Simulated scan of single mutants.
Amino acid sequence: MRARIRRQYRIVRYVLYRETIVSPADHFWTFAGTFIAIASIGLLQQAGFTQQDGVFLIGSFGASCVLLFGATNSPLAQPRNLIGGHVLASLIGVAVHKLLPDQLWLASALAVSTSIVCMQITRTMHPPAGATALIANIGSAKILGLGFWYTLTPVLSGVLILFLTALVVNNIPAGRSYPVKPLVWPRQLRARVIRFVRLR
């Protein structure tokens, strides 16, 4: 009995450990992708705003980088989830803040919980987006003053930088691909363009 338990323990430990092994090449690409993405957003911020404003660099982007470059194959890191989750959560966060501007605890709780449910419904679950909804309620006066512009910048502009960086960096090494399923729309767009040219 003890021998069997020990054997099962060794198997489980091996499987769990093996699942967490990442090759040194993956460490490099994770670092490179994250560095390029955050540096690009930071440079954009530095070019247009003082460092105290912190408008372009929001905390949820760091968490998104963990998924995009550290867990590239995760369903939660895919483009639909990344873009849809952040945009949806930012809209909900701002709407709740406008509805309950003086009730920080209630607005924060309502924004995050509603965002999660809406992401579940729309199949755009992206955990860092919960922070995006929260930041819309607890952010600096500069962020709160943006209103619905918060969705356009910093959220959408930052998310597009993250997405484009992930698209380039994660497709350079042979063992990585992003997104996991190839994008369908470029092929559909190409077919429509060819059809349009032939009709003319």
Rank of each mutant, 00 (worst) to 15 (best):
M1I: 00
R4F: 07
I5A: 06
I5K: 11
R6C: 05
R6K: 13
R6D: 15
R7D: 10
R7I: 04
Y9N: 09
Y9D: 06
R10G: 03
I11S: 08
I11A: 02
Y17V: 03
Y17Q: 08
R18P: 03
E19S: 15
I21P: 00
S23E: 09
A25G: 14
W29A: 01
A32Q: 00
I36F: 07
A39P: 03
A39W: 03
A39D: 08
S40N: 06
S40W: 02
I41K: 02
L44Y: 06
Q45K: 00
Q46G: 14
A47C: 05
G48N: 08
Q51A: 15
Q51N: 07
D53G: 07
G54C: 09
G54L: 10
L57E: 03
I58N: 10
G59S: 12
F61W: 07
V66Y: 14
L67N: 04
L67E: 07
L68T: 09
G70D: 11
A71V: 03
A71S: 11
T72N: 11
T72L: 14
S74W: 02
P75W: 04
A77F: 01
Q78H: 10
Q78A: 03
I83K: 02
S90W: 04
L91T: 06
I92T: 03
V94K: 05
A95L: 01
H97P: 01
K98L: 13
L99I: 08
L100G: 05
P101N: 09
L104G: 01
W105I: 12
L106R: 09
A107C: 00
A107W: 00
A109R: 04
L110Q: 06
A111Y: 13
T114A: 15
T114V: 14
S115N: 10
V117R: 08
M119H: 08
T122P: 04
T124W: 01
M125W: 06
P128Y: 06
G130I: 03
A131W: 10
T132D: 10
T132R: 11
L134Q: 08
L134G: 11
A136M: 10
G139V: 15
G139C: 13
G139K: 13
A141C: 03
K142I: 13
L146M: 12
G147W: 06
F148T: 14
W149D: 15
T151P: 06
V155Q: 05
V155F: 06
L156Q: 05
L156F: 14
G158K: 01
G158Q: 05
G158A: 07
L164A: 12
L164M: 12
L164K: 01
L164G: 09
T165G: 05
A166T: 06
V169P: 07
P173I: 05
A174V: 12
A174P: 00
R176T: 01
R176G: 00
P179N: 10
V180G: 02
P182L: 02
P182S: 04
P186D: 13
R187S: 14
L189M: 14
R192Y: 03
R192W: 07
I194N: 11
I194P: 11
R195F: 09
L199G: 15
R200V: 11
